[in-house]
Structure formats: C-alpha cells, structure tokens
C-alpha cells in the first residue's frame, strides 16, 4: 500500500511544484468562500527541506484523494438520479472512502462538510429536518427506505459540493500542523464515532469509513516516517498498531466489500479499541517529534 502512495507521490511530483505556492488562488477563493478556520500557522521557510518535501507529498496525497472523491461521487450521484437503486447502494461507501481518507483537511471547510456529511442526530428534528441533506440523507432513502425517488436535487447538490471541496482544497494552503495533525485526527475520528458504529446507521458500511480513516492516517505517517528515523521504537510501535487494526479489518473483508458493521463481534470491537487508543496517544506526539510547534 505504501508503495503505491509513494509512486503516486512521484507521478504527481510535477504537480507539487505548482501546488506549493498557491497564495494568489487562495486569496481569490477567500473572497467568495468563508476562510478556512485554522489556528495554526507556520512559516514554511523554517521547515527543513526534508520535512517540506514530505509535507508536499502529503498535500499531493490529499489532492489526489479529493480528485478521486469527485469522480466516485459523480458516479454515485448519477446512479441515484437515474434510479439505479442497487448500483447506487453499491457505490455509496465506495464514493465516501476517499473523503474519509482526508477528513481532517476537508474539515477546514466546515460549511461544505456540514452539508455533505451531516448526520440526522445533529438536528433537533432529526430525519425530518429539511437541512438534513448530503450523504447520510441519501443513505437513509437508499438503504432504509429502498428508494431513489425524490433524491435528484439532494444528489446533485452533493456532487457540486464535492467539486467545491476539491477546488477549495486546491486553493488553500494547508498548514504543516494541520497536515501532520491529520494522522491523529483521523484516529480520533475512529475512536469517537467509528468504533460505536453510529456513522453509517442505515447502510452499516462503517468498516469502509474505518478503513478510509486508517488509510489516510497511515498515508501521512508513512510519508513522514523517514523523518522519524531517530525514533525507531516509536515508529515500530505505530507500525505495529496500524497492522493490528488492518488485521482485524481484513477479516471482515471479502470480494472487495466489507461485512456490515453489526457483524463485528464484541471481541473484535475490543481488539480494535486497544491499537486505536494506542495510535491516538502515540500520534498525538507526532507534531512534537517533528518539532513543528
């Protein structure tokens, strides 16, 4: 897996060069869209060349995933709009996965994310709230109600939101702390809402999101790993805990699909809690280990 990320890094090496300095585009985007709210800022100039290069590679990873997200969401939305129920259902979790890989970066654009990925229990009116749109609204109709009827507008909005997200990511510089912090933020997201299985309550595709979060976290870690060479014990421990999570997930994977989340035994759920908590604790020290703050 890490090999393919690295090769992507190389493929997009050219792109990185242009992405490094997009301040003008960012300024332009800010005039139309709310500013990404990020308290951390770090003058790029103070970073070592190695760290700078690794962060560029992280950025490339994020951009690649955002592109993939747009593509998959388009296919999903088309299936919904043309009433192909079975296909729409099968594309649902697949479309979300690239988004789950870059969730902490996407979270910089809260206005879009709150439309695309909001859950019914964030509203007092729950499912009946007209502001309940996005992925989970579609999920509810597709999986709980078994219909694509009346979803065209919500689906199209999702597609255009995914494109807007992609554009905003392209136009916004991502601070080093935000980027590095993504590795632990994705694990925090698992610890808070994935272990419980509350995210994909109608489709039970939580393990897809779970996998996406882990992949995204690990992608960043792998790209930063060369800079942590003096910390062999730490690196080995983090690697081991990623592997422990992957081992459990792989047991629930067959023919390119994940088993429904309710199939997860309480024993395996516990087997996930251990390495997830350890990853959360360890990765919370990543910024300090890279001397970022």
């Amino acid at each position: 897996m890490s090999a393919s990320w690295l090769s992507r890094t190389l493929i997009f090496a050219g792109l990185v060069a242009c992405l490094g300095s997009h301040a003008q585009i960012a300024a332009a985007a800010d005039s139309v869209a709310p500013l990404a709210k990020d308290t951390s800022s770090h003058p790029r100039g103070q970073l070592s060349p190695d760290l700078s290069a690794a962060l560029d590679a992280c950025r490339t990873y994020v951009v690649t995933q955002a592109d993939e997200f747009v593509r998959r969401t388009r296919a999903f939305v088309d299936a919904v709009k043309t009433g192909r129920l079975a296909e729409a259902k099968s594309l649902y979790a697949y479309a979300r996965q690239p988004y789950e890989r870059i969730e902490p970066v996407a979270a910089l654009f809260g206005d879009i994310v709150k439309r695309m990925d909001v859950r019914a229990d964030e509203f007092e009116l729950r499912e009946r709230d007209p502001a309940f749109i996005g992925f989970h609204r579609l999920e509810m109709s597709l999986f709980a109600e078994g219909t694509t009827a009346g979803l065209a507008e919500i689906a199209e909005r999702l597609a255009s939101d995914s494109t807007e997200l992609q554009q905003r990511i392209l136009a916004t510089p991502i601070s080093p702390t935000r980027m590095v912090g993504g590795a632990s933020a994705l694990i925090e997201s698992i610890a808070a809402t994935k272990i419980s299985g509350e995210e994909e309550r109608y489709s039970r595709t939580d393990l897809w999101d779970f996998q996406g979060n882990i992949e995204g976290s690990k992608a960043i870690f792998v790209l930063l790993r060369p800079l942590l060479e003096q910390d062999q014990e730490f690196v080995a421990r983090v690697d081991r805990n990623y592997r422990r999570v992957e081992d459990v997930l792989s047991r629930y994977r067959a023919a390119g699909d994940f088993a429904p989340y309710d199939r997860l035994t309480s024993r395996d759920r516990n087997a996930l809690k251990g390495p997830i908590t350890l990853l959360a604790e360890d990765l919370s020290t990543l910024r300090a280990r890279l001397n970022l703050d």
């Binding site: 805990n241 809690k273 251990g274 390495p275 908590t277 350890l278 959360a280 604790e281």
Partner: peptide, 9 residues
C-alpha cells in the same frame, strides 16, 4: 484511562 491506553477500555 490515559495511562492504560491499549490495555483496558
């Protein structure tokens, strides 16, 4: 809880 991470939930 913090000090027993990975060992107890």
């Amino acid at each position: 809880i913090k000090n027993t991470a990975g060992l107890a939930a």
